[in-house]
Amino acid sequence: MSIASTPPGRPVTDEVAPQRSDRSPWNWLLLVPIVVVLLVPLYNRVEPTLFGWPFFYWMQLAFVALGVATTSIVYRMTRRSPAEQQAARDAITRDADAGRRED
């Protein structure tokens, strides 16, 4: 199995991948944490404090959660069907088995 070092630009098989699209209106959600975090005047102040932390610090740590929430929502909403995900897992297992047999 020396396909691993085929020069760049040459596909392994002559088959083509099915046409898919990675567009989705949900993707726009990803802009929310980026824009909010870059608007520094929004959080550049001391009050209100939380457990002794100035606003500037605890709010930015809270934005971590905002980032996680948006990427998680986009992932869930654009997730493929269970059958397709199973197909991907099967492909990994199949290749793994193939590798083992050749050992």
Binding site: M1, T13, V16, A17, A88, D95
Partner: peptide
């Protein structure tokens, strides 16, 4: 040297390389 469909190819597609490593 690439096709439009390459950019959205999934693991199970025939075009995606199956690697000999039993990593999974």
């Amino acid at each position: 040297g690439t096709a439009v469909s390459d950019y959205t190819a999934e693991r199970e597609d025939p075009t995606v390389r199956d690697l000999p490593d039993p990593l999974a």
